[in-house]
Amino acid sequence: MRPVWILCSVLVLGAFVVGLALIDEPPGLHGRSHPEFKTLRQGGDAALRHGPILWLGWAFGCAIILCLSTLVQFGALRGRGRESLGWWLRLATLLYLGIWTWLIFAYRASFGSGPPELYLTLPAPSAIMIFIFWPVSMLFAACFALGFRRWVLTEEEEARFEQLVLENRERGED
């Protein structure tokens, strides 16, 4: 993975930030003071504050996920023999993007609805965020631990490194 891909993903995110500066914020986007308790804030009407920017937010989230995945792949896919890791990481990214999209659809469906059905004590969008979106991100960390000897530090690389340390010490002693 070449750094130019990081640069591209960062520039896309930068364009989002500049673009956001050029459009009007929906009313109450950052919530409002709680009418009764001064230490609390309220979100207000979901459809009113997020409806106009929901798909823009979805796209911004996708761009962030792709940028983060690019950074993982940049660190991971160095040297030969890591092609299969690349496929696993891309698969994890696709799955992660899919769940992110599911979260947005679930949130959209909650606009103006009555009391929510709870899944493991949380309304659907938050349940997806905590019980699915969060655990699936662990796939990236799992690739590191499970494929360590195959993709991160092979025995051959370790031997080469030990040789390098030895040579460096000998050079220092000379």
Partner: peptide
Amino acid sequence: SEAIMTLWRDDPESVGPWGTLGMIGCL
């Protein structure tokens, strides 16, 4: 569940994925 429903009745967004801060701020 009782705690979540108390929060939901007061402000559904507080137990939604973006809390009161809003989507872009959270991202």
